[in-house]
């Protein structure tokens, strides 16, 4: 885990410095003499050789210091700490809703394969999968925030404000999850242990919820772990549409400003959270399937 995060932050550190765009030049008006630009570089530390900057960055990291933003000099850790819970909360709400909906819909479809319910689910899944989230977000705002005025159009301002960005993320997450649930259930329902359970006279709901779901949940949990990465990284678009004060928005603006410390800080935290979620997912496998040991 530490190695993965180390790799990500190292890669980010060097990539942002190789991409064209001098942060010092961006902080001064066009036509500013080179001597002034050089002074700004000295102030923000980008005049030093890149390896020196890297060692400085790593030593700060060890001390828990993510540095200060080039823009205004605020501590990066402070900005990240403010933005991260907002993204996590939106992500968590969306993941929970998407997972519950997917499980219910997936069960309904898998229990009656090729029925009208199954076909309707597949149609909905196809439509949802081919709907771009930037378009969907705007449409939801136009209908539910502007036309009906039921929910806020932008900002994180109370529980109601979670509905539209959450719905946008849920529609994006839903198709893959529901397909996985349906397919896992279909595979499991044909297994010998299910026939054996039914033969023992167990009620159908017990067969389904205790025996089948436990096995079918393994791929679902893998997917939820992977989708968490999408929610963290892909939240940029949704956060931009809804002006959500999350880490995606923070990272996007940092990239535009070439605010190196802020980019490094946001990527580090996103990588850390993503890795942590996947560790939890791996540990969950063992709880669900006794054959898996670490």
């Amino acid at each position: 885990m530490v190695l993965v995060i180390f790799g990500v932050v190292t890669l980010t550190f060097f990539v942002v410095r190789l991409v064209p765009g001098d942060p010092a030049r961006l902080m001064e008006p066009p036509g500013t003499p080179e001597s002034i630009i050089q002074t700004v570089r000295q102030q923000i530390g980008t005049d030093r050789p890149i390896p020196v900057q890297y060692v400085d960055f790593l030593s700060g990291l060890v001390r828990g210091d993510l540095g200060k933003s080039f823009r205004g000099g605020r501590p990066v850790a402070e900005s990240v700490a403010k933005a991260l819970p907002n993204t996590l909360l939106l992500g968590l709400v969306s993941m929970v809703v998407a997972t519950v909906l997917s499980v219910l819909t997936g069960i309904a479809a898998a229990l009656r394969p090729n029925s009208w319910i199954d076909r309707a689910v597949l149609v909905v899944v196809s439509v949802a999968q081919s709907t771009p989230n930037f378009w969907l977000g705007v449409m939801l705002v136009l209908i539910f925030a502007i036309e009906f005025q039921w929910f806020p159009a932008i900002d994180m301002a109370g529980p109601a404000s979670f509905v539209l960005p959450g719905a946008t993320l849920v529609v994006t997450l839903f198709p893959l999850l529901v397909r996985t649930v349906r397919q896992s259930l279909l595979d499991s329902l044909g297994e010998d242990y299910v026939r054996a359970a039914r033969a023992r006279g167990l009620p159908e709901h017990r067969v389904l919820l205790v025996h089948v779901m436990k096995v079918a949940a393994v791929p679902l949990i893998t997917l939820v772990g992977l989708q968490a990465g999408f929610v963290l990284g892909g939240a940029v678009v949704v956060e931009s549409i809804f002006n959500w004060p999350g880490i995606g928005n923070l990272a996007l603006k940092a990239i535009q400003d070439r605010d190196f410390p802020m980019i490094q800080g946001t990527v580090l935290v996103i990588a850390g959270v993503f890795t942590l979620i996947n560790v939890v997912v791996d540990l969950t496998y063992a709880a669900l399937d006794p054959r898996i040991r670490y």
């Binding site: 159009a153 900002d155 535009q256």
Partner: peptide
């Protein structure tokens, strides 16, 4: 500062 013009318009039309 909100960079996206559609987001700015949405906020205005929604009264935010």
């Amino acid at each position: 500062f909100i960079q996206d013009s559609q987001t700015r318009l949405n906020a205005l039309l929604a009264g935010q």
